[in-house]
């Protein structure tokens, strides 16, 4: 097992919401969205770690905290043993270079008035990656790396298709020779054939450059295909983490089971077969006591309503945060 590149410990992040009129009248304090509630996670060098979970469970918040776009309320993120939020590290720009985020929306994350060549040149010069004289050659090299034609350098973002724009975003992220890539819904907006192209590129670059990738996506087939390990998040906590193939073929946490069984099958004959999660959707404004999943869990018992299960290793499975994980692992 290789050493962790990023170590995330007990990370909490809450967004205060403005006090509503009703709060003012009732003299209630402002409310807060508790987006992350104690995330512990190691990102190992060279791996792809998939992150899945319900919409609003905190995936993007986690990704953004890791690239320091958000400041956590509590907990630490260390990179090479150094806390990235410590004052001296915050001033250190090399972290911004070594850990790169690629956003979901290729339309809004590229400056529409800059040509593809200018976008790459800017990235190279901001971080002083190359002397000015060597920049054009490096731009050409990057275009080649993501398989964009050389005349792409002269074009503006709107002159590219969605898939090509995603490749520009990847080239920009790679321009600064990062060690870690954070991909938040990188390919969600692309058709399956272009998705396949981008995924092939990521896998190939990972192999060649030894990149570590955090891959956030809703498409479970895709996450399964690219990931070495997968973490399932529920209400800002990891409820299950483990080897991708074993987690997908035998999920243990009841929420992971529900999530995986909701993936739409490619066979129209399966229509109406998928079991739906029952019960009230959880709110990060008001997290249930005990196991946060107990209101919707078909296996919930008394202990689930009062005690919060911790993430722990389960024989033959990964790590699972469920009081009944051992029984589930034994009896399915």
């Amino acid at each position: 097992m290789s050493a962790p590149v990023l170590e995330i410990r007990d990370l909490h992040l809450a967004f205060p919401l403005g006090r509503s009129f009703a709060d003012l009248i009732a003299r209630r304090p402002g409310r807060a969205v508790r987006a992350l509630n104690g995330i512990d996670l190691d990102l190992r060098r060279g791996e792809t770690l998939g992150i899945v979970g319900e919409s609003g469970c905190g995936k993007s918040t986690l990704a953004r905290a890791v690239v320091r776009l958000y400041r956590p309320t509590a907990g630490t993120v260390s990179f090479g043993g150094e806390d990235i939020f410590a004052a001296h590290t915050r001033r250190d720009r090399t972290y911004n270079r070594r850990v790169q985020m690629m956003f979901q929306d290729p339309y809004s994350s590229l400056n529409p008035r800059m040509t593809c060549g200018q976008i790459l040149t800017e990235a190279l010069s901001v971080h002083r990656m190359r002397p000015a004289a060597e920049i054009p050659a490096r731009v050409a090299e990057l275009l080649d790396l993501v398989r964009l034609p050389q005349d792409a350098a002269e074009k503006l973002p709107h002159e590219f298709s969605g898939g090509q724009r995603q490749r520009i975003a990847i080239a920009r992220a790679l321009a600064v020779e990062p060690e870690v890539l954070i991909a938040d819904e990188l390919v969600s907006a692309l058709d399956v054939s272009v998705q396949a192209q981008v995924v092939n590129l990521l896998l190939e670059l990972q192999e060649r450059l030894g990149l570590t990738i955090l891959f956030v996506a809703h498409d479970l087939r895709l996450v399964r295909h690219v990931s070495n390990r997968v973490a399932v998040i529920y209400l800002g906590r990891i409820v299950e983490i483990g080897d991708s193939e074993s987690l997908f073929s035998a999920p243990t946490h009841p929420y992971s089971q529900a999530l995986l069984s909701a993936a739409p099958s490619l066979d129209p004959a399966d229509r109406g077969r998928g079991a739906r999660l029952q019960g009230e959707l959880p709110s990060p404004l008001n997290i249930p006591p005990g196991c946060p999943f107990h209101l919707r869990c078909p296996r919930a018992t008394d202990i689930c309503r009062t005690a919060r299960p911790d993430l722990r290793p389960i024989a033959g499975r990964g790590e699972v945060a469920c009081h009944h994980a051992d029984e589930i692992a034994l009896n399915g």
Binding site: V192, R221, R224
Partner: peptide
């Protein structure tokens, strides 16, 4: 191109 029935982390058809 759909990643189904393909060995994990291998190239997909495109």
């Amino acid at each position: 191109s759909v990643p189904e029935g393909v060995a994990p982390r291998t190239a997909l058809y495109s």
